[in-house]
Amino acid sequence: MPDLSALTIAYGRDTHLANVVLGFEAQSVRPAELVIGVMQDRPYDLPATSFPVRQIHVTRPDGELPLAAARNRVADAATGEVLAFVDVDCIPHPDFVAETLAVCTPETGILMGEVAYLPSGATEHGLDFDTFEQIGQRHSDRQGPPPKGMRLCNDYRCFWSLNFAMHRDTWATCGKFHEGYYGYGGEDTDFARTIDAAGLPIWWMRGAKVFHQHHAHCMPPIQHLASVLRNADVFAERWGHRTMGHWLWGFSLMGLIEKDGDAIRILREPDESDYALCRQTDDMPYANSRRVIDILQASQQEEEARRTEVAEAEIAFVTAAE
């Protein structure tokens, strides 16, 4: 059986990362190594493991997150035949490594495993995978896995970078993550667009599950407004159109941005009311842009209907009866 390098990138999130490490230590087939792209100056103090753990520092002088560069560094440094990327907030199921190794070959392309979102407090007393299975929820805006095996993903925009794997031969030929992206947003969709342009398949697969740990987050990601706009323009320069359209539309509905010809400009910075609308609360398993957009559009429609009602009432009031 080939060996697998587990890969992640991290900034802060010490407890989340420790749980990821413990998740890989609990594997039925352990990884050959865990390589961490550390996007901060200090290294992490991590739990002991039966496999090697390497920390590679990848930072930018301006303090922006180098997500694309960090993913490239850990993959380039990996020694395993199979490369499995998980986000720092994703705990692998005990069969994650075994199930990934069972299907990943040089001919496979890109594999996207399952993701279940955990509620707040789920990891307070350690890793209880039986409980995680019972309480973890699938994201409502994401495709579910096939009943068994793999199903082709025909839209690169559905690529999910928080849990994916490929053979190292694929990594060597696919073009990697474009390092013109930094800060938050766009680099993963660009990577999937590159994979698609190269004619490599992207698959949803049953198994290789991770459990996403609850944390405070906003969707759309208004806390990253400037970098989302910048990276959307980088994507447009490379591919002829912007990406992250659902986030940009949400920003527009909130009055944060507007189109100015072909350009998009920031009108104002998010305020507390915007954060209150977009913030994930403890009763939500995940933050959801669709929820926010639906609220904003419903409010906009109600306002338009009310304006029409008032205008009609004013006309009726001043119009003489026949």
Rank of each mutant, 00 (worst) to 15 (best):
M1N: 06
D3N: 11
S5H: 05
S5K: 03
A6L: 06
A10C: 15
Y11A: 07
R13D: 13
D14M: 00
L17H: 09
L17S: 09
G23I: 02
A26V: 07
A26M: 09
Q27L: 01
V29G: 00
V29Y: 00
R30M: 09
A32F: 04
A32W: 05
L34T: 04
I36G: 02
P43H: 04
D45E: 15
L46A: 04
P47D: 05
F51V: 14
F51R: 06
R54T: 08
I56L: 15
V58Y: 02
T59V: 13
R60V: 03
P61Q: 03
E64M: 11
L65V: 12
P66W: 01
L67H: 11
A70S: 14
R73L: 07
A75N: 06
A77D: 13
A78D: 07
T79A: 15
L83G: 00
A84F: 08
C90P: 00
I91Q: 07
P92Q: 07
P92Y: 02
H93C: 10
D95M: 02
L101F: 06
G113D: 06
G113Y: 02
A116H: 07
L118V: 10
A122I: 05
H125L: 05
D128T: 00
D130M: 01
F132H: 06
I135H: 02
I135S: 04
G136R: 02
S140D: 12
P145F: 08
P146I: 02
K148V: 06
K148D: 12
G149E: 10
G149C: 08
C153S: 14
D155N: 14
C158N: 12
W160Q: 12
S161G: 15
S161V: 15
N163V: 00
F164K: 03
M166V: 02
M166D: 00
R168W: 08
W171A: 11
T173N: 05
T173S: 13
K176A: 14
H178C: 11
H178S: 09
H178V: 09
Y184N: 07
G185E: 10
G186H: 02
G186L: 08
D188G: 06
R193L: 12
A198K: 15
I202F: 08
M205K: 13
M205T: 15
M205G: 05
A208F: 02
K209C: 14
H212K: 12
H212E: 15
H214I: 09
H214C: 00
C218T: 15
M219G: 00
P221S: 15
I222L: 04
Q223M: 07
A226M: 10
S227P: 03
R230C: 05
N231G: 04
F235V: 03
A236Q: 11
E237L: 11
E237C: 09
R242L: 03
T243P: 06
T243M: 03
M244P: 08
G245D: 15
L253Q: 13
M254V: 06
G255H: 08
I257T: 15
K259E: 14
G261F: 02
G261K: 04
A263F: 03
A263Y: 04
I264D: 03
I266Y: 00
I266H: 02
E269W: 11
D271V: 14
C278W: 01
R279Q: 14
M284L: 08
P285I: 03
A287C: 12
I295A: 11
I295Q: 13
I295Y: 04
L296S: 06
R307K: 14
T308F: 00
T308H: 08
A311R: 07
A316I: 10
A316K: 14
F317N: 09
V318L: 10
A321T: 14
A321M: 12
